[in-house]
């Protein structure tokens, strides 16, 4: 698996305030990587540095082997970006919004319609962008990012503030891009989104990566109690240590047909984040 995004020792300050400190990460081809952290942790700053929108004070960032500070036109075309603050032309229709970029990239009207179809906005192609719901605007921004069939997608809080149905639609689109072999770098402060989508995540707090790995791996790492929770058919729950003796106990309960469900009790990402930083992830 080739490395598509690489950062080494990235640091950035705004005036006296240190926003990023020695950030290092490697993201492989076809991976969905999630950067988790509360608001103000430095997620957007890192995405801006990785995409060449902002210069770092120290360290290096590479996109597909190219220095992020010196990306050429062709290299930029292979990156799709949608940031929370990226605007759309509210007076223009969805199709006209995409046509601007189709002209820039030398694409056709069919490419525009394909991009709209991909995000489920075919029927809204003539609708003025300003009249779209927040979820549909999000999808229009994604269509713009997907248009050039980029190898790497940078998505800054793509489902932020959306209702569950719209968020699920965005998640479906992201997963379909992964299925096409695209690399996705997304930032989020929603634990469930990271667990659902990401192969690997980094927890960012006060500009530092405090934990790195797959969501399940990180949760297991902080499973200090190692217990099993068994829901019995009679409605009772029992919690037993997760060890060799538990195997005998669980086997007998299953044999007797008493078990409804069995769970391990590792913490979720929210709990892990709070344990490491003393802060709430969704703050």
């Amino acid at each position: 698996m080739s490395i598509m995004i690489k950062a080494e020792g990235i640091s950035k300050s705004f005036g006296e305030k240190r926003v990023l400190e020695s950030i290092g990460l490697e993201i492989g081809s076809g991976e969905i990587f999630g950067l988790l952290g509360p608001s103000g942790a430095g997620k957007t700053t890192l995405i801006k540095i990785l995409t060449g929108q902002l210069l770092q004070d120290g360290g290096s960032a590479e996109i597909n082997g190219n220095d992020s500070r010196r990306l050429t036109g062709d290299e930029r075309r292979r990156i799709g970006i949608t940031m929370d603050d990226f605007g759309i032309y509210e007076r223009l229709s969805c199709a006209d919004n995409l046509k601007i970029f189709a002209r820039i990239y030398g694409m056709t009207q069919k490419d525009v319609l394909d991009a709209l179809e991909k995000v489920g906005l075919s029927e809204a192609q003539k609708t003025t962008a300003g009249k779209l719901s927040k979820g549909m605007k999000g999808r229009l921004k994604l269509a713009r990012a997907f248009m050039t069939a980029p190898d790497i997608l940078f998505l800054d809080e793509p489902a932020s503030g959306l209702d569950p149905v719209s968020a699920n639609e965005i998640h479906r689109l992201i997963l379909s891009e992964k299925a096409r072999g695209k690399t996705v770098f997304l930032t989020t402060h929603t634990m469930a989104e990271a667990e659902k989508l990401c192969d690997n995540i980094a927890l960012l707090c006060d500009g530092r990566i405090v934990e790195y790995g797959s969501p399940a791996e990180i949760c297991r790492r902080y499973d200090h109690q190692r217990m099993l929770k068994i829901n019995l058919r009679d409605g009772r729950d029992i919690v037993i240590p997760h060890n060799k003796e538990a195997a005998v106990k669980v086997a007998s309960l299953i044999e007797e047909g008493k078990t409804e469900t069995i769970h391990t009790t590792e913490p979720d990402l929210e709990t892990v984040f709070t344990e490491i930083t003393g802060k709430e992830l969704s703050a």
Binding site: T51, G73, R76, F86, G87, I104, Y105
Partner: peptide, 16 residues
């Protein structure tokens, strides 16, 4: 207006 609504930034990111 393009600066305020960040559409200019999108154009610049698209090689304009």
């Amino acid at each position: 207006e393009e600066r305020e609504k960040n559409t200019l930034k999108v154009l610049m990111m698209s090689n304009v």
